[in-house]
Design a protein around this nucleic acid. Structure first.
Lengths: 200, 200
DNA sequence: CCTACCGATCGGTAGG
DNA sequence: CCTACCGATCGGTAGG
């Protein structure tokens, strides 16, 4: 029994997006080419670009897909914990293992995309910026919740969110560029101290 | 009186490298093209690539040039201070103003190059790795000097070097992607605490 | 989803 | 340092 063509089309889009996300984590979201994607997927270039219309649309959809993977890997395990100390600790652990695994062959997709597009105006840059802002606001909110419940003290939520985000970038660089697995433990210490989970 | 051709050739190389470093900070070290460089320099493509032989050589020399600018901007002002607390504080201030100025139109060149090449083997990757390691070792050494002179305490030199480096990446991203000038002050607080210069 | 094709641009070379 | 050129590949389209 043949699948509906709509279902098949959706499946094709999914497999293309998966390949884009993997390749972009290595070569950058702008470094992908339709020809290379087509070759790796065993498809024609027209078949790759057709469902998306343009390279920029493909980039935007790949960015959305990467954000969804990040959410599933990092946010969802944390969201299962009660707000406060427990959620903050879970979030840090989930983030570190997302970076250590790593979820994408070339390391953190959003760090790569931010570095690639931060100086180039356009829809992709705007989307990266929006995702980054939203995440940093979420982080600050979780720190604030832990402060309000009296579980941590002596930290500024925005400052802590900024630091945890920066440390994640440092861990990613250490793993990807230096193949330094110790960076996970260094990152843990730094993130826990920045959020007031540990004293030092 | 005509300049010697050797002198003229050196001048040409310099102007090409300056353009490469600027463009690469925006589009990535792999995103530059000989054609665009030639157009911006008012030269032919052969004139741009000739003195270097290949795009990879040009990338390697641009990387060396960017490292020299970083050294002049960040290391040299710090090196004029006595080792220990004073030098550490000067280094942090010099680094923050290097990022805030910014020295390259697209922000920190080495962060950009690391993100671009960390997942792609080759000479460029090796060079980025070497420069990064050397710098982190230098940072750790300066923290150690301040500990040994008794000016700071309670910090691990490698941990502090890792954190300061990560915070610099966070400041760069905040400035470039979010146009957030407050990041300099957040970075200062985080770097000073990570190195034991401030308590909080 | 394919083949066949478009004009533009890629990195690089020959020859001067 | 230039002009003129190389084969390869780029993103994308027409037509089926």
């Amino acid at each position: 029994m043949p699948r509906s063509s709509r279902e098949q089309a959706a499946r094709t889009r999914e497999s293309i997006l998966g390949e884009v996300v993997d390749e972009a984590s290595v070569s950058g979201l702008d470094g992908i080419t339709i020809g290379t994607l087509a070759e790796h997927l065993g498809m024609s270039k027209a078949g790759v670009i057709g469902p998306f219309g343009s390279k920029e649309s493909l980039q935007l959809e790949a960015l959305g897909r990467a954000a969804a993977i990040f959410r599933a890997d990092v946010w969802e395990p944390a969201a299962r914990e009660p707000a406060g100390r427990a959620r903050l600790a879970a979030l840090i652990e989930a983030w570190l293992s997302h970076l250590a695994r790593p979820a994408f062959p070339g390391g953190c997709f959003l760090t790569q995309a931010a570095a690639d597009f931060d100086a180039r105006p356009g829809e992709v840059r705007d989307a990266v910026q929006r995702i980054g802002r939203l995440w940093e606001r979420t982080l600050a909110g979780e720190v604030r919740a832990a402060i309000e419940s009296g579980e941590i003290a002596g930290v500024d939520p925005e400052q802590a969110a900024f630091e945890v985000n920066a440390i994640a970038q440092g861990v990613n660089q250490a793993i990807q560029l230096h193949r330094d697995r110790d960076a996970v433990e260094r990152g843990r210490r730094a993130m826990r101290r920045a959020t007031g989970l540990s004293d030092r």
